[in-house]
Design a protein around this nucleic acid. Sequence first.
DNA 1: ACCTAAACGGAGTGCTCACTCCGCTTCTGC
DNA 2: GCAGAAGCGGAGTGAGCACTCCGTTTAGGT
Lengths: 215, 215
Amino acid sequence: MTTRETTAPTLRRDARENRDRILAAARAAFAAEGVDVPVEAIAERAGVGMGTLYRRFPTKDDLVQAVIEESLDAFVVAAEEGLADADPWTGFTGFVERVLELHVENRALREVLAGTEHGHARDAVRRRVRPLVRRLIERAHEDGSLRPDFAPEDMPLVFMTAGRVLEAGRGVAPDLWRRYLGLLLDGLRAGGATPLPRGPLTRAQMNRLLDRERR
Amino acid sequence: MTTRETTAPTLRRDARENRDRILAAARAAFAAEGVDVPVEAIAERAGVGMGTLYRRFPTKDDLVQAVIEESLDAFVVAAEEGLADADPWTGFTGFVERVLELHVENRALREVLAGTEHGHARDAVRRRVRPLVRRLIERAHEDGSLRPDFAPEDMPLVFMTAGRVLEAGRGVAPDLWRRYLGLLLDGLRAGGATPLPRGPLTRAQMNRLLDRERR
DNA sequence: ACCTAAACGGAGTGCTCACTCCGCTTCTGC
DNA sequence: GCAGAAGCGGAGTGAGCACTCCGTTTAGGT
């Protein structure tokens, strides 16, 4: 008996190849058409049958999650780069921009993070990035560049809305989101901040809000 | 022969009653569940059969459009009220707020205007409101309160994004959109405005962008 | 070579919807 | 009242999709 790996039943070579092909196809298909592409289209693109695909990924959600995972590292790296920036403000905005650039490349990422559904994958990402984001915001608060009433719980709103613009502009004005983000970021600056009509979400509310979107 | 109305073939009394009941049911159903409610649910709620509903509204789109039309006047009134405000800035922001309040009441309105589909109905609304909005923006520009690089073609972004927040907050934090709008409006003020990374959409681009969303 | 567990493919299933068809019922003008 | 046009209901149709079943093929250890 060889060492008992947690869950690595060593796929047969053909199986492993197919798995990779499926992931590549899914990545491309999601990027091109959004997570709504029929599973069948992905199977075809990958040159495998439905059965094959479903044995590897028992659920469409699993497939989505696997594709997302590939962007996860880039996401964390973006946050770390932001923290590495000497200027807390450009560190913060640079992070936001970088994440949105990832959204451009990977439509699934946006659709999951901005939360139309697939809550499970989203939770995983969020857990990992949350502390970094919190620190990014704290830094910009201490520095006096970010308006003090902006809370970490407001971040989903930023991604949600910018993501919406990004999606709308796809194919017509691919960088329109940068303009929108410019407007919004000017609103986040400490400079001309005006009292807001209500407080941020509590963390529980935020979770509930994002969860409700799973459908 | 009585006067030839453009298209008023004088429905039979029962037909007219049913038509009204269908509209009422649709309004309620859309508000409660969004435009995705099955047509069947509306028919049931109205106490009529599918056949009846479809004879009156040959397409689900027609039904959506009819419901929207009911909010149209309120929409125009909001713009006129904004123009009546002596202060161009509060006139502008008051209009935006009022429109979003309409979105709260009438989920279909948002789903159509913010442009997930049903482009036809949207076009009708836009044609009617556009000149008023243009004037609202001009006034605030002349007054120096609205950042000069904000263009009328940016308005859809405002409604699109605020509407997104509104929808996300529904049932958890119904007034969350007001907070988001506060942030964004601070970004629209002339005060701390920073150069934007790209220009606004051309009108043609805007139309294309909104049209693409019809699916 | 050979044998068998693993892997494969794609037609089939079940579900949700928008939309249609048609035999029956009800207004309404004469 | 009574024709017959106008209206009605709701089972049925077709299309799109996620997901399953099972007879066939193949990798790879011996």
